[in-house]
Simulated scan of single mutants.
Amino acid sequence: MKRIIVTRYGPPEVLRLEEAETPAPGEGEVLVRVARAGINFADLLARMGLYPGVPKPPFVPGHEVAGTVAALGPAVAGLAVGDRVVAGRSFGGYASHTVAPRATVTRLPDSVSFDAAAALPVNYLTAWLAVMHPGALQPGETLLIHGAAGGVGVAATQLAKICGAARIFGTASPGKHDWLREQGVEPVPRDDFRAAIREATDGRGVDLVLDPVGGDHLLQGYRCLASGGRIVTYGISAMAPGRRRSRLAQLREWWRTPRFNPLWMMGANRAVIGVHLGRYRDAERLQQAQTELFGWLESGEIAPRIDSVFPGAEAAKAHQHIHDRQNIGKVLLDFA
């Protein structure tokens, strides 16, 4: 098998292609022949040593794959060799073969491509938690999505429309604003979004803010909330402003991360919600989310936007593409 390993924490160039022995699935496990592996910003943070729980190098990054069942371990039911599947992993997705627990493997409908399937697990489940539950966006409400042209941002926009959002605001690089408008998103400046939201809503604010940035950015998002509003924090990309790990940036953003006082929140009638998909323990809720997402995918109500597919051997280029903020939607690796 072929796999991409992180040789040491650092810039994209630390990613290296290597040959390895194909693993055998253990009890309750499935060996997947990977066709597509999804790339998430969490992978970039892991490569730099900034992601919570990241293994020490060398390790294989990647949290989501789509492909076919190559082998089944003992005590695995409901699947057969050759089935088309999508699977979630803690790490290990950037490879031609990967072993996943049966509970994380789902058979794909024939109508769902490997590209769409590999774009679904992390981005759309994160967006579902942020928008649907516990984000609880209601019909007629408004929201602000930071990083609206990224994988989670695109997913959140589509789910907000399903919820009946009245207005969707979004931040992104200026070159992506026209694309946002085509999606029904009202662009606001990344550097002065609070003033733009205040003006656009006549001072009321928005009902829901989705923030993957963290630091002071999170506090400014909180201050954009209307009475009864919620802000969902699901990342801290501010700690990784460049290609390399910066202790100074880490310390600065950690220092600037707000500590929310419950008395403030009570007085303002605002809520702060944290979402970490990898540590979400309500399996029944995630199953509900997955069922709804696949239903909407088949009906056409959601459609992952694939920005680009890089050969597996070019994982470093794919990471740099995301660092450079070139992507609109999902970036994938091809291991077919």
Rank of each mutant, 00 (worst) to 15 (best):
L180D: 11
S90W: 12
L15T: 05
I145G: 00
F310D: 04
A70F: 04
R230F: 05
P11H: 11
A303K: 14
G73T: 02
L251V: 13
K330D: 06
I322Q: 13
P52E: 09
D192F: 06
A315Q: 09
V152R: 03
V112R: 08
A226N: 13
Q158C: 09
L44T: 09
L180M: 14
H321G: 01
G140V: 10
A46V: 10
I39M: 13
V76F: 04
L208F: 08
H177T: 08
R3N: 04
W254H: 07
S237D: 10
A240K: 00
H146K: 14
A116L: 11
E64K: 05
E199F: 03
R223F: 09
G215R: 02
G164I: 08
Q326P: 00
N327P: 00
S113R: 10
G164A: 13
Q158M: 04
H63V: 07
D43Y: 10
R279N: 14
R259I: 06
V85K: 01
L120M: 15
I197W: 00
L129A: 10
R279T: 14
G151N: 12
A195R: 08
D115L: 09
A318H: 11
G274I: 11
G140I: 13
G214K: 00
G62P: 15
G78I: 03
G62Q: 13
E253A: 02
R247I: 10
P11N: 12
L286D: 06
R259D: 10
G295L: 10
G150I: 02
R181W: 13
G205M: 03
L129V: 04
G267T: 06
P189H: 13
P12I: 05
V213N: 09
R244T: 15
G67E: 07
I236F: 12
A283H: 13
G153R: 01
S111M: 09
E64H: 05
V131S: 07
R223Y: 06
G205S: 09
Y280H: 12
G205W: 01
A318N: 11
S96N: 07
P174A: 15
T233W: 00
V209F: 04
R194A: 11
A95P: 02
W254M: 12
L143R: 02
E29G: 02
L120T: 07
I231Q: 07
T257Y: 12
Y234C: 06
F310S: 04
L79D: 04
A165P: 00
V14E: 14
P121S: 12
E29T: 00
R89H: 15
E298I: 06
A103K: 13
Y9S: 03
P12L: 08
G62A: 14
G153D: 08
A71C: 14
I162M: 12
V188L: 11
G203Q: 04
I5C: 09
R259S: 15
Q220H: 15
A268D: 10
A20M: 12
Y222A: 00
A303L: 11
F335S: 01
N269M: 11
F260K: 01
G93V: 07
W296N: 07
W264D: 15
F41S: 01
P61F: 08
T22N: 07
P121W: 08
A24L: 14
H146Q: 15
A249T: 06
R230E: 05
C224Y: 03
G78W: 08
Q287P: 00
A149M: 02
G329V: 03
T126L: 03
V76S: 04
A20C: 14
R223A: 08
A238E: 10
G205R: 03
H146M: 15
